[in-house]
Every structure is written in C-alpha cells, then in structure tokens.
Write a protein that binds this DNA or RNA. Sequence first.
RNA 1: CGGGGAGUGGCGCAGCCUGGUAGCGCAUCUGCUUUGGGAGCAGAGGGUCGCAGGUUCGAAUCCUGUCUCCCCGACCA
Length: 440
Amino acid sequence: MRLSQAFLPVLKESPSDAQIVSHKLMLRAGLVRQTAAGIYAWLPLGYRVLKKIEGIVREEQDRAGAIELLMPTLQSAELWRESGRYDAYGPEMLRIRDRHEREMLYGPTNEEMITAIFRDETRSYRDLPRTLYHIQWKFRDEVRPRFGVMRGREFLMKDAYSFDLDEAGARQSYYTQLLAYLRTFQRMGIQAVPMKAASGPIGGDLSHEFIVLAPTGESEVFYDADYEGMDWSQSGLSYGDAEGLQALFDRIGQTYAATDETHDEARWAEVPGERQRQGRGIEVGHIFNFGTKYSDAMGFRVSGPDGAMVTPQMGSYGVGVSRLVGAIIEASHDDAGIIWPDAVAPWRVGVVTMRGDDPASAAAAEDLYAKLSGAGIETLYDDRDERGGAKLAGMDLMGLPRQVIIGPRGLAQGLVELKDRRSGEKQELSLESALARLAA
RNA sequence: CGGGGAGUGGCGCAGCCUGGUAGCGCAUCUGCUUUGGGAGCAGAGGGUCGCAGGUUCGAAUCCUGUCUCCCCGACCA
C-alpha cells in the first residue's frame, strides 16, 4: 500500500473521550472511529488487524475440527421464548419490532439459534459429535460501554457450539477447544492464561476464561510462570488424542492460575515465589460446558445406539475478536505507539525515505517496495512528500513491526537502515540483505 | 440503574460567572525557506457555539426543556 493513496487518518492528540491507552492509540493511529456509545466504525488500518485476528481464530477452529457457518445478527423473539431466555435476559438484549410488529432482537449470543438449526437436521447419534462456529457481530446493550472496543456494545465474536452424545464426549470437545484457544492466542503473540471461571453454569470444572496480561486489565490475576514457557503449537498434541488432551487438561488444572474471584491463597502459597506472577488481565475468551440446558429446553434429542432417545450435551466457546484488537494493544505498546506482533500486524514492513527530494532514495524505496510486494510481504510505503521524522513517527504510531529507512547518507555507502519496532534496534544493511532479512 | 462531568471549525481547548454577534494551538490549503527522527516564516480557508423554546434592542454567554457523549460504581466476549 502506498500511503499517498491510502485512507489512514492519524491524530497528534487523542480525543478527550479516550481514557485508556489502547483506545487512545486506536483513535490516534486511525483504527476506529466511534459512531455511537460503544459502537465503532473500523477504518482500514483497524479492519486489516481485525481480519488478521479473525483469520487466526478461523484457522485454528478449522484445525480443531470445528465447522464454520454464519448465522444472522437479527433473531426472532420466538426462538428465545423456546429456551425461556427472552424474558430472562434483561435489558442487555436489544429488542426490536419490525413493520409487522413482530418482536425481534439483535443477537447477544446464539445458543438458541444454533440449537434450533442443528436440532432440526439431526436425528441420530451418528451425526454426533459436531462443533459448529461462526464469527459474527453481536450486540449487548451494556449499561456502560467503555474502554473503546474492549467493552463495546457491538462486538465481533467467534462463538462455537459443541454437541455430544454423552458427558465423556463433551469433555473431549471441551478439551479440543481448550487446546485450540491456547494455540490461537499464542499465534497472536500474546500471553493468554486459562483460568478456571468462578462457576460454570452447571458447576463442575468445565469452564475457563482466557486472560491476557495487561496493566489496564479489569480483574486481578495470579498465575504460575510455567505458563510463559509453554509452547502449545509445538506440543505434539493432536486433536484426536484423547489421552493427550486429558493430560493437557490435568496439567492446566495443576498449574495455578486464577482471577481475584477464584483466587485460593493456600494453593497460591504452594507456587514457588519466583514463579508467582500477579497482575491485571483482560478476558479475551471464555469456554464452558452447559450440559443439556438448551437441548433440554428446546427439545433436541437424537436416537442413541440402543434405540433410546438421548439429549445431547452442549458446550459453547467464545473469543472476543474485536476486543482482542484492544487487548493486544494494551499488552503491546510504548510511548511512541502500537507494537504489533507480526501475526496481526496490518502490514509487516514499513518503507520510509528520509529525504523526499532525493531521487536516489525514492528510486531505492520504489524498488524495495516492488520487491517486497512481489515477494508477498505486506508493505506500507510512505511515499508522501513529508519530512522523514513525521513519516517515522507515523510508522511507530501504527506499530509496523519492521521499518526500512532509506536516505541519501546511507545510500551513498549502499546502505539502508532496518529497524525493529519492538526492540528499537537499527541495523545498516545493503538493500539486498535487508530484503533477504525481511523475506526470511 | 445510582452518582458526577461535558457538548464551541477535523483534533485539543479558551470565552460563559459580569449578554454586545467567536478566539488560541495543532491539522488543512498557498507561497517561500528548509529537510537524517512529528520544521520555520508569511498568508488563506473552514464554526447557524448539540438541538428546541423562552427572556432581551441584542444570547456561545441568562432561563426551561430535550438529545448526545464521557467518567466513577454494580454486570459482561
């Protein structure tokens, strides 16, 4: 992308509405603009990041065997009356009437709908287990939306729903999503720790929240530093491996992690002092098993192997996709701006010339931009007629992981500067080796 | 929902108390000088002061109503 052709509005000062860093940076770097309380328009930069995150979530869901579909944002009240939640849900649900005075609602979640859809097409235990998911906008009419995209009223969420014949199967589905989540967040370059949730809807041990560490988090968290070293992608675990998944679950059960709500001082004291990690955290995912709550209420039964009717076990698994954009920024920024982890960066590389009036610099930048683009490396080339410093400040604000800085001084010796956004390290290299480095 | 605060060019703010027809910084545009980490000078454009009503010769300013947004608390991906 050439910056001169882009729509990337950047602000020097943050609007006074914004209180927390991620919100300020999202406004300043031009990721979003607020259009109403808790409702945001995603500008090109923010939308690119949102899609990156969504893509990672999708890939990991697919790998875990979940099946994607897409359900609508608008739902009929009738559906929710089946489960009894239409009256139970309260004012968080946005209720709407259409022109025929039919009661509708903007979906805050999709248990009812997925249960109805799956129920209507499924008769036999042979059709189980299945985990279905979609990535769709939700609306919850929060009493007090705040923190920008982190607690918006409209938000993008991945929600998956599992259907199993029995409890043992439901556990497997749960473990599968647990592993998928660990891998998902790891790929995004953030440390998300699974913590047993205060209380699962039906009790038991099958409910976890995934918390990203960030100083502005909403809850206090405590966890064992062992989580920091775990590599979920390279663990050799496969989704079909029941024993391995059980072992994973057991290991997580044994490795301490809790929010202030579930914190257990006695167990915490058993964690060696040097491994105790304490801080604040943002919830970016939540998985839980709810047994037959919805299948029961909505009359979903299948024929079992012995001919008897069985009510399937269900679980649901949510990832706050739009919230993650804010959460990642909270966890990864500095005074100059955002620091995107590679996997979610809107562009991997930024190219800047220090002197707009130097034809050699411009030619070198054009050449590099063409080669990077040709190599499939997403590159933002600031080809505007601006001063070097202004362009560099923009690159830092937008958080591009790597920046190539080209100027007449270096070029005279055949060198360009390669800068790492996170470490701030700068290296002088030939154009060719910079290219090779970036392509690696 | 309870408590607090704010709406004035794109952004950040002043003016309001003590009515006299809108100002500053940044941004934008033009010109010149500049150029290695958000340049300087000169000039220009852009606002029915959230909206509606009222008081007044005259309202950004006073009064009433209304809408919106933000913050603190109880709840949530």
